[in-house]
Amino acid sequence: MTAPQNDGGRYRQRPGRPLVLAFLDPKSSTSRSQLAVLRSMATQYGPSGLTVALVDATGRAGHDDLVNLRYDWHLDVAGVLVLEPADPAALAHSYGATAIPTTLLIAPDGHLARRWDGTVAPAQDLALPLQDLTASPAASP
């Protein structure tokens, strides 16, 4: 799986693929609840093209902490990317993330399909639009 591309401090998704981008505090219980949902979505919809990426929006988790987070939560196995931007607060700000957690669902064409600020995005709320965004185009008769 390839990471979203760095474009001047913002991350762009893979062309034609939906992206769930989450700004979390890895030490927060609310963020960890969101992490469980993200891992589930990556496992379920990753094979259909979904990219799930998370950022430590606080910038307080060091590289080793993020490596441990990947390992402890089996994020690499699920296909969840843990991004380590040089300035996580600036990246969060560029996406309008002012609360933790903030989770964004970005459609394959790059527009914001849905967002959740300061709350866990429930699996059901993510799954319904993801079913549409990851569905294969209907075959023409």
Rank of each mutant, 00 (worst) to 15 (best):
M1V: 03
T2C: 10
A3S: 14
Q5Y: 04
N6V: 14
N6G: 07
D7C: 06
Y11G: 01
Q13E: 06
R17Y: 03
R17E: 03
P18C: 04
L19K: 07
V20G: 07
L21G: 02
L24S: 09
D25M: 04
D25S: 13
K27W: 15
S28P: 04
S29L: 14
T30H: 13
A36R: 09
R39M: 03
A42M: 10
A42G: 11
T43I: 15
Q44K: 14
G46W: 12
G46N: 00
S48Y: 12
G49T: 06
V52Y: 05
V52T: 05
A57S: 10
T58K: 08
G59T: 05
G62Q: 05
D65Q: 11
L66D: 03
W73C: 08
D76L: 00
G79I: 10
P85W: 05
P85M: 10
D87S: 01
A90S: 02
A92W: 00
A92N: 05
G96P: 08
A99T: 02
I100H: 02
P101F: 05
I106E: 07
H111Y: 11
L112E: 13
L112P: 11
R114D: 14
R114A: 15
R115F: 13
W116S: 11
D117Q: 01
G118C: 06
Q131L: 15
D132F: 13
L133I: 12
A138Q: 12
S140P: 02
